[in-house]
């Protein structure tokens, strides 16, 4: 077979994710892959991750729905309501499905601080749903900061005693996609990888290396300012935002290149510090988000 010389493929994380998705959907179309069932469970959180997923492009949400997964349960979007909705959730236990969870698991009072529905007259707690479905799922995604480690829901003093999904499914392997919210590309790209060639390679904290391998700081367009010690004094400045509290040096994501909302902007591009929303420990470990009184230059003795 004749081989054509092709121009070199783009190797940015975005390009890889896009080509993964395209390959996955092509394979589905050609019958190489089966569309898989997806259960999207919203627990103790703000439902911001599902909104972020609706913001996805390449693949967009429509495409995901039509070509990649059969979305079988999603509180924010499904037509059914009440017990009929909850029944759909229970029916999944007899089938093969991928489980995606956003929001933390509230432990207080046996999980009754987060009731996600009722079944046969009894309240169904987020805790029950997470353990029940997590036990049966073929793959589990913890989507967003609340699901990966408790996130906002677990911020001090953690009134609902919220924890990350892993804590209630200790023996289960899961892929963790931190972020507040998750970037749609991180979720859909990981999903595509799973459909195409199994679970993606992850680091020791279960984050896909594809998206979470590199410190923001190491690819920050404002890095030269840091290296020269030229620091922003206030928001809106165009230099390094380190002294205002930038958590780019401790946060691993591809934000500098992928950016947000189809790549139009990102927090540092908006002249504000990264607040480390994709770092484990967010928000408490990443606070304060913005400080104006950090020492910029120590008067030389």
């Amino acid at each position: 077979m004749e081989r054509y010389l092709l121009p070199p493929e783009e190797l940015s994380n975005e390009a890889i994710a896009e080509s993964l998705t395209n390959t996955a959907t092509e394979k589905i179309r050609n019958g190489l892959l089966q569309k898989k069932n997806l259960v999207y469970l919203e627990l103790n959180g703000c439902s911001g991750n599902i909104i972020s997923l609706l913001n996805g492009s390449n693949p967009d949400f429509e495409y995901t729905l039509n070509s990649m997964v059969n979305l079988r349960y999603c509180n924010s979007l499904m037509g059914a309501e009440g017990e009929q909705a909850t029944e759909k959730l229970f029916n999944m236990l007899d089938e093969d499905f991928i489980l995606a969870v956003e929001g933390a698991v509230a432990l207080k009072n046996n999980g009754l601080y987060n009731v996600i529905g009722s079944f046969k007259g009894n309240p169904l707690t987020g805790l029950e749903a997470a353990t029940m479905l997590g036990d049966k799922a073929s793959h589990i995604f913890a989507v967003g900061a609340c699901a990966t480690h408790g996130g906002m829901s677990a911020a001090k003093p953690n009134p609902s005693e919220s924890v990350g999904l892993q804590q209630v499914l200790q023996d289960k392997k899961m892929t963790k996609l931190p972020g507040c919210p998750v970037n749609p590309g991180w979720f859909l790209g990981t999903l595509a990888h799973l459909l195409l060639s199994g679970e993606p390679e992850t680091d020791n904290l279960d984050r896909p290396l594809l998206f979470y391998s590199t410190l923001i700081h190491d690819r920050c367009p404002r890095r030269p300012f840091f290296d020269r010690g030229i620091f922003a004094e206030k928001l809106g400045d165009k230099t390094c935002l380190f002294k205002l509290g930038c958590r780019g040096p401790v946060t691993r994501t591809d934000c500098p290149t992928r950016k947000w909302n189809s790549g139009v902007n990102w927090p540092i591009g908006d002249d504000t510090p990264c607040i480390g929303c994709a770092q484990f420990g967010f928000p408490d470990a990443m606070a304060p988000f913005i400080s104006f009184d950090t020492t910029r230059v120590v008067k030389d003795e």
Partner: peptide, 8 residues
């Protein structure tokens, strides 16, 4: 009793 009221 309707629980959950979905699409909110």
């Amino acid at each position: 009793v309707i629980n959950p009221l979905t699409r909110i």
